[in-house]
C-alpha cells in the first residue's frame, strides 16, 4: 500500500479535478437544463421547438463524440477552449443539461394545472407563475431523478481522462502502469475515491428530499 502514500498528491489532485469537473458541470447543467425545461413548456412555439431540438440533439449523441467535437472539431471553425478542462466542463454541461431538462420538465408536468391556473388568475405572468409557483414545487418532486442525473454526470467525468484532463481515471491508468504488481489496490483506491463523491451525494440528495417534502 506504500504507493498510496507515495502518490498521495497525484491521487488528491485527480480527485479534486474530478470533483470540480462534476460540480462545475452539474451547476451549469442545472441552470441550462432548467431554462430549457421552461422553454419546453412556454407558450411560444419557437422556444418549445428550439429546446426540443437541443434536447434530442444532445441526449442522443454519445458524450465522447461531444468531447471530440469540442476539443478537436471546433478548431476547424476557428474556435478553441482556453484549456482542456474548460472544454470538458462544456461538453459535460451541454450533454447533462438535456437530461436535467427532461427531469425538470417531468416535475413541471407533475404540478397540478390548478396551481398554475390559480397563479395566472391572480395576475402573475408566465415567468412569475413558473418561477414562484410551478418550479419550486417541480424541483421537490424531481430531486430523485436529478440525483440520478448527477451521479451519472459524476461518473461521466471520467471521459475527460481521454482528452488530456488529469482526473481520477487518468490517475488510475497512470498508477496502474507504474504499479503493475499492485493493480488491484490501485483500482480499489480510485473506485473508493469515486464512491466518496457518488455515495456522499446520494446521501445528500436523500436528505434534501426529506427536508423539502411538501405536505399535500
Amino acid at each position: 500500500m506504500s504507493f498510496l502514500v507515495d502518490n498521495f498528491t497525484l491521487l488528491r489532485d485527480g480527485f479534486l479535478t474530478t470533483l470540480s469537473l462534476a460540480l462545475l458541470s452539474g451547476l451549469l447543467a442545472l441552470l441550462l437544463g432548467t431554462v430549457l425545461a421552461a422553454m419546453r413548456v412556454s407558450p411560444v412555439l419557437a422556444l418549445r421547438g428550439l429546446a426540443t431540438f437541443y434536447v434530442e440533439a444532445f441526449r442522443n449523441t454519445p458524450l465522447t463524440v461531444i468531447f471530440f467535437f469540442l476539443v478537436f472539431g471546433i478548431v476547424y471553425i476557428d474556435l478553441q477552449f482556453p484549456t482542456k478542462f474548460v472544454a470538458a466542463v462544456a461538453a459535460l454541461s451541454l450533454y447533462t443539461a438535456a437530461f436535467v431538462c427532461e427531469a425538470v420538465r417531468s416535475g413541471i408536468n407533475s404540478v397540478s394545472t390548478g396551481q398554475a391556473e390559480a397563479a395566472r388568475a391572480l395576475g402573475l405572468d408566465f415567468r412569475q407563475s413558473l418561477t414562484t409557483i410551478v418550479l419550486p414545487q417541480a424541483f421537490r418532486t424531481v430531486i430523485p431523478p436529478l440525483g440520478n442525473v448527477w451521479i451519472a454526470l459524476a461518473k461521466n467525468t471520467s471521459i475527460a481522462a481521454g482528452f488530456a484532463v488529469t482526473d481520477l481515471t487518468a490517475v488510475l491508468s497512470r498508477l496502474a502502469n507504474a504499479n503493475g504488481d499492485q493493480i488491484l489496490a490501485v483500482f480499489a483506491a480510485v473506485v473508493a475515491a469515486y464512491l466518496i463523491i457518488t455515495l456522499s451525494s446520494a446521501w445528500g440528495f436523500s436528505v434534501l428530499e426529506r427536508k423539502l417534502a411538501i405536505v399535500r
Partner: peptide, 25 residues
C-alpha cells in the same frame, strides 16, 4: 389575448376554484 395586458386584467378578476388550488408549498 395574452401577455402583460391579460395578466393585468386578471389581477382585477378574483377566481375561486372547485379544488381550491392553494399554493401547496
Amino acid at each position: 389575448e395574452e401577455g402583460k395586458a391579460l395578466a393585468a386584467l386578471r389581477s382585477d378578476v378574483g377566481m375561486v376554484f372547485q379544488s381550491f388550488n392553494l399554493f401547496a408549498h
